[in-house]
Amino acid sequence: MSKTLNVALVQTDLVWEDPEANRRLLDDKINALSSEVDLIVFPEMFTSGFTMNPSAVAETMEGRTIEWLKEKAKEKQAVLMGSLVITENDNFYNRMVCVEPSGAITKYDKRHTFTLANEHKVYTAGTEKVIFEYKGWKICPLVCYDLRFPVWARNVEDYDLLVYIASWPKVRITAWDTLLKARAIENMTYCIGVNRVGLDGNNHEYSGHSVAYDVLGNRLDTLKESEDATEIVTLKKDQIKTYRDKLSFLKDRDSFSLKV
Rank of each mutant, 00 (worst) to 15 (best):
E119A: 15
F42H: 06
G126V: 05
I105T: 09
M52E: 04
K121I: 01
P43D: 00
R111H: 12
E67R: 07
I86N: 04
Y145A: 07
K76S: 03
T113V: 13
T124F: 01
V85A: 05
V99D: 05
M96P: 10
R111V: 15
T127Q: 14
E75G: 02
F92T: 01
A104S: 11
K135W: 06
S102V: 12
E100P: 10
E62W: 03
L69G: 03
I66Q: 03
D109C: 14
T115C: 01
N89D: 13
K110S: 10
Y93I: 15
G126K: 08
E128Q: 14
Y123Q: 02
I40K: 03
N91L: 10
N89W: 12
Y123P: 01
G103E: 04
E71C: 02
E128N: 15
E100W: 06
D38S: 04
G82A: 04
Y123S: 03
T47M: 06
S102L: 11
G136E: 00
R148S: 05
A117F: 11
T127S: 11
E119H: 05
K135G: 00
C98F: 11
N89M: 15
V37G: 00
Y134Q: 00
L84W: 14
V41H: 03
L80M: 03
K135S: 02
T124K: 05
W68V: 02
V57S: 07
G126F: 15
E119M: 11
T60L: 04
T106H: 13
E44V: 09
N118E: 09
V85Q: 08
E71S: 03
I66E: 02
F132W: 09
I86W: 07
A58T: 07
I131S: 04
A125Q: 00
A117Y: 09
V41R: 04
G63C: 01
V143D: 12
P101L: 05
E100Y: 09
F46K: 11
V122S: 02
L80W: 06
P101E: 03
C144P: 07
C144K: 06
E88D: 15
P141Q: 05
V143N: 11
A104M: 10
D109H: 11
A78Y: 05
K110R: 13
A78I: 10
Y145W: 11
C98M: 12
V79K: 01
M96H: 10
E62P: 02
K107G: 14
Y145L: 09
S83Y: 11
E133S: 03
A104I: 11
T115Y: 09
N91G: 02
A78S: 04
M96L: 15
Y93D: 13
V97C: 13
W68H: 02
G82W: 02
F149M: 08
E128R: 13
R95K: 14
N53H: 15
T51F: 10
Y108Q: 13
H120F: 05
V130D: 06
E88R: 14
L116A: 08
K76D: 01
T51S: 15
S48T: 14
R148I: 03
F50P: 14
V99L: 08
A73Y: 08
K138M: 02
L142S: 10
T47C: 04
V97K: 08
V57K: 07
M52K: 07
S48W: 08
